[in-house]
Simulated scan of single mutants.
Amino acid sequence: MLVASPDYLAQHAAPVEPEDLNDHQCLLLGTVDYARDEWQMKSKSGTATFVPTGPSFSVNDMDAMAVAVRSGAGIGLLAGFSAIDDLRSGKLVRVLPEYHTYERNVYAVYTSRQFVDAKINRYIELLKANVGSQLAATAREFIDR
């Protein structure tokens, strides 16, 4: 989701439409899951692609992005699970709340499927049982509003 600090939004009018992001300092996150050069978003009314232009701040780590956004450097993309505590406390505010990025998958990576320790199997089963429901609860709280 797109987020910014209250301090940043006090100095810059919050965007109403994705095109309004052109008037803002956009903080870019470049990872395997997030393309640095465009933000693909969707809402109940359709999809939007925003291509950030101009000088920008760029990182390849979600935690570094959270620090930059909290410090008031601009508007950035954060995963719901990464932003939820700051949203609840008021350190961050959703920007364009009707838009969000596409859902991502969560993977458990381990060395071998052939010789999986019982502890690993149990841990994966716990992840399957709990992570999805916790992420869904985050979505209901902040994304599906």
Rank of each mutant, 00 (worst) to 15 (best):
R94Y: 03
S43K: 01
K44H: 11
G30A: 13
Y110V: 03
G132P: 00
A64R: 14
L87C: 13
D23Y: 03
Y110C: 09
T111V: 13
V131I: 05
H100A: 14
A64G: 10
S43A: 07
G132M: 04
Y34T: 14
L9W: 00
V93H: 09
T111G: 12
Q114M: 14
S45R: 15
E38K: 15
T49D: 07
A79W: 01
L27G: 07
L135D: 01
G132T: 00
L96A: 10
V131Q: 05
H100P: 00
S112G: 05
G90A: 03
Q25V: 14
G90C: 01
R94Q: 11
P18Y: 02
V67S: 08
N105S: 13
I143W: 02
G54N: 06
S45P: 04
G46F: 13
A83S: 11
L2V: 01
F50Q: 06
D61I: 00
R70Y: 09
V116D: 07
L77A: 13
L27Y: 00
L77P: 06
G72E: 03
I84L: 10
S71T: 00
E141Q: 12
N121F: 08
V93P: 03
A137Y: 03
L29Q: 00
T111L: 13
D117Y: 02
D86I: 01
L135V: 02
L77K: 11
C26E: 11
A83D: 06
T49A: 15
R88E: 08
S112E: 04
P55L: 08
L96H: 06
S5Y: 01
K128L: 06
G132N: 03
L2F: 11
M62K: 07
T111M: 12
S43G: 10
D37K: 15
E19T: 10
N105Y: 11
M1L: 12
H24S: 14
P52N: 02
R122K: 12
S43I: 05
T101I: 08
A129H: 05
M65E: 06
S45W: 08
G46P: 02
C26A: 08
Y102W: 08
A118C: 00
P6A: 03
V109R: 11
G30F: 12
L87E: 13
V95Q: 15
